[in-house]
């Protein structure tokens, strides 16, 4: 339960895929985020959510999030092989300060395969994320976890 891994074969040369991932402007194009600065290892990036430019259908779905703050910290830039950053998964509530919560690590690993590129994306560290946060992402009715953790708190303080 600690990680998500995606492996995909892209019909594009390694250099092309590397650029699409490691160039902050290109990354933003497909991911749907806008950065003012290039990715630098160790740097905390702040961007804004914008609808993706490559898929009008998805862009429409992303429109409500336009302008939302997007933060990640670049962990590693190893040309043509690995790009990694940390972020807060499911940080969807603009009123919540997630800065003290544990982050997950997102890694892009590239290798040539035939005339294309094998891309493996791994997001790990989910075990460290409080379950309350995970549950909240889905609890439309607020009677769920919040109520129960308060109840628990009450019990424990006896």
């Amino acid at each position: 339960m600690d990680r998500i891994e995606k492996s995909v074969l892209l019909r594009a040369p390694l250099e092309r895929v590397w650029r699409a991932i490691s160039d902050s402007k290109e990354f933003g194009t497909w991911f749907g985020v806008e950065f003012d600065a290039p990715f630098v290892a160790g740097k905390a990036m702040v961007g804004r959510m914008v609808p993706t430019q490559v898929d009008p259908e998805v862009a429409k779905l992303q429109e409500p999030h336009r302008g939302a703050r997007f933060e990640c910290t670049i962990e590693a830039i190893e040309p043509m092989t690995r790009f990694a950053f940390r972020w807060h998964p499911f940080a969807i509530d603009p009123n919540v300060d997630y800065s003290h919560e544990p982050t997950t690590l997102v890694e892009f690993r590239l290798s040539p395969e035939g005339s294309g590129t094998r891309l493996v994306i791994t997001e790990s560290g989910f075990d460290r994320v409080p379950l309350e946060r995970r549950a909240k992402a889905f609890t439309a009715n607020e009677g769920g976890w919040e109520h129960q953790s308060k109840l628990l708190e009450k019990y424990l303080s006896r």
């Binding site: 339960m1 998500i4 995606k6 995909v8 892209l10 019909r11 594009a12 092309r16 895929v17 699409a20 991932i21 290109e26 194009t29 497909w30 991911f31 749907g32 993706t52 490559v54 898929d55 998805v58 998964p89 499911f90 590129t117 891309l119 994306i121 997001e123 989910f126 995970r134 549950a135 992402a137 889905f138």
Partner: peptide
């Protein structure tokens, strides 16, 4: 369910990356 949702988000992001690079 939370992990499943994040997993679907990645599937969607990968397809957008594919559109761009291919």
């Amino acid at each position: 369910r939370w992990l499943d949702q994040i997993s679907r988000d990645w599937d969607s992001a990968i397809e957008r990356l594919r559109i761009l690079v291919e």
